[in-house]
Design a protein around this nucleic acid. Structure first.
Length: 923
RNA sequence: GCUCGAAUGGUGGAAUGGUAGACACGAGGGACUUAAAAUCCCUUGGCCAUUACGGCUGUGCGGGUUCGAGUCCCGCUUCGAGCACCA
């Protein structure tokens, strides 16, 4: 029998399916282990060979854990809402649901061929009403909650209302959009609309007038993580800032907990660092500067309280409400003109245009420490959204303030000893303070760090300001002007938003005639007929963003068919959270923040037991494409081989990697590839046409896409799985290069040949040789350690070594081959299952027991030492393993090879490292 | 600009501070074969030798610690990733 992957793989895949081998259920007699992949968005292009990388890695770990006796939950599903399906629908009129279903079917068939151990009975799709019911449910719960800063958790808005009725805002410490202050009587006097607006200020899901990232080309708003450098991540279209009334989630309330939680989970440092960066905690002080001749007080935030003595002007963001309040009549025209100018710039233009610009308001503020008057300016280098939208400018010690001061010729006062500020500012937070004394506060001579602390103390005592922590993390904008997303379970009565009753969920996505905005500019849902409650109240026209459905999906897998709850107490209590999460690093500041926020919210409600959703997280690297090029001589149809191209004037042209093998072009296939190459001529080297190559993104336009189906068809799923893991470390990005896959394929054939020669089954029950036992025990030890460290590529090398050793030992003993199959099973499930049954086992290898390495066989009879002189190894010796160090030393010094090196020298020192090296220091 | 990570043969990549280059690809040579494919064996960092199981050199660059550094420390260079008027 030859190794026939087609037959083996289809047969065992059917067996696993028919026997529900991968069905998972609650089993309190076994410890649980939850392994999760970031579920894919099913795109129209199908899977390429890069997509399964993480899935294979998690599959190996799942199978390994199961063999170790864990009850493993390993589900899969689809993140089915998304822009591409909708864009496609706009172009073709095809309903996104139809294309999404087709794409999912395609994904499923591709995934099935690779032999994953998913429990497909737990599949979820974010666009299923049975799933998005719980997305809508969570939204309603957020609407009905506010964040109590004292308790540091979400609480019912109903509690807040009864507090307002009793004592107004007195004693309320809640996360809010702006500080409010009213009495119980004032609250009671409010009408319904006023009350609604007031509560919006506190709700975790709230409607707010906020600056949003508006993308005109996509016709929708985007969250901060969906925008990069002023362009939309999807499509790369320009994004502008626009004030809009939108649903938002008060993620910012959880900033500190999201930050603290990072210390409790096992993620890579770089990912944690990225999240810390995004959350952006900064400790500083908030300080008030009174405007001269006015009651207005400018509140500013600074991390450099020590530099107050160097404040020579102040700057407001153009959007700041202070601007209107303080601008003097004679400066009004100039300020208006400037604001108008700024408004017409997009975010991107503002970023690219680094030129200093600004205008004087005509007003002066009073420095609370020195009592001096300082001018107040407006400039777009100050951001409205951070801190208070106003800053105190210290040009000597802040480069942005410095550039502004130089441009407008404002004074610069150095505050740190030895700082030369004639050419640039001194931004470092170190040195001794100078020029910093007035009245009761004297910072001169202090280190910067101490000066900051002293100033903070002083301003708190004097009531000039207070210590304050600011976060960069903003609330998430939750409305999208799109069709293909979850509808909001919200209707409007007299202009006041109301939540639908929980028992009316899910609110189904309605049909529309076109997937475009209405003529009046309303979102696509504006086209839906009867989009209103039975009582005739209009329903919200926006839909939820992509991250809504992906924020709690890992919980739904625990209990996917439950109609009463997102997840039952029992299922949540058993599966708890994800033990191992594998996915791409691109979700670092999006999904992985929102999901943690969502989970913490549910935790506050008592709906889930774990405060963090993903205990350990691994980011698999990206698989890049490896493109091939042919070189056409200018103005001809003649192509010159890569090695000879320097002699000609050539244009490189991408060529389909599927008609190239080991960088050698199949010239006949090339002629047939495209009509314009039908009569191509070639200049060969050594009779071959050699292509050039480059590493690029895997994409259709580069003709470097490799489809896993083709690989599976040609080499089998087991070869694909092994090869993907063999390419290099899991977390590293690397190019896909089909050259080299033969190596792992040969390995599987050699494994097969240990069991079969022709039709003869070779395995017997004979006692294995010590060498064979040692080989396989070494393997078990290595693979166990490697899997725990996700170092799969070195495991595969170990398998190759072991199989080669067993082959040359002609070992066909069951005693050795059976454990070899078990440890290989996670990597190559099909061939191991086949051979496992050939050995006479009648249950699946998935339920075998992971073997333990027997140290007895690993003992070395001899220890091998490298003998070195002054650190450079010169020869090797072998001695009995248990020889004491002193004797090893004597033996090495007495060795004939040593004589040569010791000639005319004296031994100064000898160091013996057990089993490794004898280092002889000579002088 | 700030933060994090990386740099090892023709290629992908191995190396708890202890014989650098495991394993694999590619390349070269050989066996089997009418031939090819497949399979198997040998060689393969560079340089110098090839009478010797020989010598020298070698992990981006410059220093340091150490008996001993790819690995640890300091200073650079280059590449990649994240954040970026965040006060």
């Amino acid at each position: 029998m030859e190794y026939n992957h087609h037959d083996i793989e289809s047969r065992w895949q059917k067996y696993w399916r028919d026997n529900h081998t991968y069905r998972a259920g609650i089993d309190t007699s076994r410890p649980k282990f939850y392994v999760l992949d970031m579920f894919p968005y099913p795109s129209g292009a199908g899977l390429h060979v890069g997509h399964p990388l993480g899935y294979i890695a998690s599959d190996i770990y799942s199978r390994y854990k199961r063999l170790q006796g864990f009850n493993v939950l390993h589900p899969m599903g689809y993140d089915a809402y998304g822009l591409p399906a909708e864009q496609y629908a706009i172009q073709t009129g095809q309903h996104p649901e139809v294309t999404t279903r087709q794409n999912i079917d395609r994904y499923r068939s591709q995934l099935d061929k690779i032999g994953f151990c998913y429990d497909w009975e737990r599949e979820v799709r974010t666009c299923d009403p049975g799933f998005y019911k719980w997305t809508q449910w969570a939204f309603i719960r957020m609407f009905e909650s506010y964040y109590d800063n004292t308790l540091q958790k979400a609480m019912p808005v109903a509690d807040l209302v009864s507090h307002f009725e009793k004592s107004g805002t007195e004693g309320v410490n809640a996360a809010c959009s702006r500080e409010m202050s009213f009495t119980a009587d004032e609250w009671k006097a409010m009408d319904g609309k006023e009350k609604s607006d007031t509560l919006m200020n506190y709700r975790i899901a709230y409607l707010g007038n906020t600056m949003v990232n508006w993308c005109p080309k996509l016709g929708t708003v985007l969250a901060n993580d969906e925008v990069s450098e002023g362009l939309s991540l999807r499509g790369g279209y320009p994004v502008e800032q626009k004030l809009m009334y939108q649903w938002c989630l008060r993620v910012s309330a959880y900033a500190q907990r999201l930050l603290d939680g990072l210390d409790t989970i096992d993620w890579t440092d770089s990912l944690k660092e990225t999240q810390r960066n995004w959350i952006g905690r900064s400790e500083g002080a908030e300080m008030k500067f009174r405007i001269a001749g006015s009651d207005v007080e400018l509140e500013i935030f600074t991390t450099r309280a020590d530099t107050v003595f160097g404040v020579t002007f102040m700057v407001l963001a153009p959007e700041s409400a202070y601007v209107q309040q303080i601008t003097t009549p004679d400066q009004k025209a100039a300020v208006e003109a400037y604001l108008d100018n700024v408004k017409h710039k997009t975010e991107r233009e503002r970023m690219i245009d680094k030129q200093v610009s600004g205008v004087f308001t005509g007003a002066y503020a009073i420095n609370p420490l020195t009592g001096k008057n300082i001018p107040v300016w407006v400039s777009d280098y100050v951001l409205a959204g951070y801190g208070t939208g106003a800053i105190m400018a210290v040009p000597a010690h802040d480069s942005r303030d410095y550039a502004f001061a130089k441009h407008f010729d404002l004074p610069v006062i150095p505050l740190i000893e030895g700082a030369d500020v004639s050419e640039q500012s001194f931004d470092a937070k170190s040195g001794r303070m100078i020029n910093s004394a007035s009245g009761e506060l004297d910072l001169n001579g202090m280190e910067v760090k101490d000066a900051i602390a002293a100033t903070k103390r002083f301003i708190e005592e004097k009531g000039i300001g207070k210590v304050k922590v600011n976060f960069r993390l903003r609330d998430a904008i939750f409305s999208r002007q799109r069709y293909w997303g979850e509808p909001f379970p919200v209707y409007y009565k007299d202009g006041i938003p109301h939540m639908m009753d929980l028992d009316k969920l899910p609110l189904l996505l309605p049909e529309v005639d076109k997937f475009l905005p209405t003529e009046t500019g309303e979102p696509p849902l504006g086209r839906a007929k009867n989009w209103q409650t039975p009582e005739g109240y209009p329903i919200e026209l926006n839909t939820m963003p992509g991250f809504a459905g992906s924020s709690a999906y890992y919980l739904r897998y625990m209990d996917p068919h439950n109609e009463e709850a997102l997840v039952s107490k029992e299922a949540d209590g058993y599966w708890r959270n994800v033990d191992l999460y594998i996915g791409g690093t691109e979700h670092a500041t999006g999904h992985l923040i929102y999901s943690r926020f969502w989970n913490k919210f549910l935790y506050d409600l008592g709906e889930v037991v774990e405060p963090e959703p993903f205990r350990k997280l691994i980011n698999q690297g990206m698989i890049q494409g490896r493109s091939n090029f042919v070189y056409r001589i200018k103005d001809t149809n003649t192509f010159v081989s890569a090695g000879l191209r320097k002699d000609y004037d050539v244009t490189p042209i991408h060529v389909d990697v599927n008609i190239v093998s080991n960088d050698i072009l199949d010239t006949d296939k090339f002629r047939a590839w495209r009509p314009e190459f039908n009569d191509a001529e070639f200049i060969l080297e050594d009779g071959k046409y050699v292509c050039g190559y480059a590493v690029e993104k895997m994409s259709k336009s580069m003709f470097n896409v490799v489809n896993p189906d083709d690989i599976v068809d040609r080499y089998g799923a087991d070869t694909l799985r092994l090869y993907e893991m063999f390419l290099g470390p899991l977390e590293q990005s690397k190019p896909w290069d089909t050259n080299g896959i033969d190596g792992v394929n040969r390995f599987l054939k050699r494994l097969w040949n240990l069991f079969y020669k022709g039709d003869t089954f070779l395995v017997d029950d004979s006692k294995a040789s010590p060498e064979a036992l040692k080989s396989v025990n070494k393997l078990i030890k290595k693979v166990t350690a490697d899997i725990e460290a996700f170092s799969y590529n070195t495991s595969i090398a170990a398998f190759m070594i072991c199989v080669n050793e067993l082959t040359s030992l002609k070992c066909h003993s069951r005693e050795v081959l059976e454990p070899l199959l078990v440890v290989l099973a996670p990597f190559a499930p099909h061939i191991t299952e086949e051979l496992w049954h050939a050995l006479g086992n009648d249950t699946t290898i998935c339920d075998a027991k992971w073997p333990e390495a027997n140290e007895e066989y690993l003992k070395e009879d001899n220890a091998r030492y490298a003998v070195s002189f002054n650190g450079k190894a010169r020869f090797n010796i072998e001695v009995p393993a248990d020889m004491p160090a002193k004797e090893v030393e004597a033996y090495a010094l007495g060795h004939e090879s040593a004589a040569k090196w010791l000639e005319g020298k004296t031994v100064r020192k000898v160091i013996v490292v057990p089993g490794k090296i004898v280092n002889i220091v000579v002088g």
